[in-house]
């Protein structure tokens, strides 16, 4: 791969990532609806493994780590590793050994596959321990803020 192309791709990636992060940080996804919607949730009402991801990144950008995990644990914990792996795969040519290998064999490949699919299935079970990994819906957050303000006015 020519060096110029590598530099161009790297610059474009960094600029786009920073721009996207700034956008998500400045405009809360729960208040602005110009963000791409999850088509699976729109049409079926089911949460996909990525649902709540944009809100999670917004929470993380505001330094609220716990709320970020609450919205989408998979995106916060796994996405950085996946992106790092992909970037490494792209730039490490010529048989260079990666410093960190996510998938080393069949077992880790299936483990990762089942982690993502299992996360997507489990968060749709509407029972207490599983609802913790489902994102909080907009109406729920609105109700929470309403009750919060309501209790504040009572006090």
């Amino acid at each position: 791969m020519p060096r110029v192309k590598i530099v161009l791709v790297a610059c474009a990636t960094i600029v786009l990532s920073v721009a996207a992060l700034a956008l998500v940080s400045a405009f809360p996804p729960s208040q602005f609806n110009f963000y791409p919607k999850c088509m699976m949730y729109q049409w079926t009402g089911l949460h996909c493994p990525g649902c709540g991801g944009t809100r999670a990144v917004h929470e993380l950008s505001q330094g609220r780590f716990q709320e970020a995990i609450r919205m989408n644990a998979l995106v916060i914990l796994l996405l950085p590793i996946l992106v790092a792996t992909l970037v490494w795969q792209y730039f490490a040519h010529g048989g260079k050994k990666p410093f960190f290998q996510l998938v080393t064999g069949p077992k880790s490949a299936w483990a990762l596959a089942f982690l993502v699919i299992g996360f997507g299935v489990l968060r749709n079970i509407p029972v207490e321990p599983f609802t913790w990994i489902a994102p909080i819906s907009q109406t729920q957050t609105q109700m929470q803020t309403q009750t919060q303000t309501g209790s504040q006015t009572k006090q």
């Binding site: 949730y41 990525g50 996946l82 490949a109």
Partner: peptide
Amino acid sequence: NYLVQSILVTICCCIPFGIVAIVYAA
């Protein structure tokens, strides 16, 4: 194995086809 790409496309596009890609990748 395209596993990372499959997971990214599943998370970002929320389409069940991504699950098919994950299974093939694994």
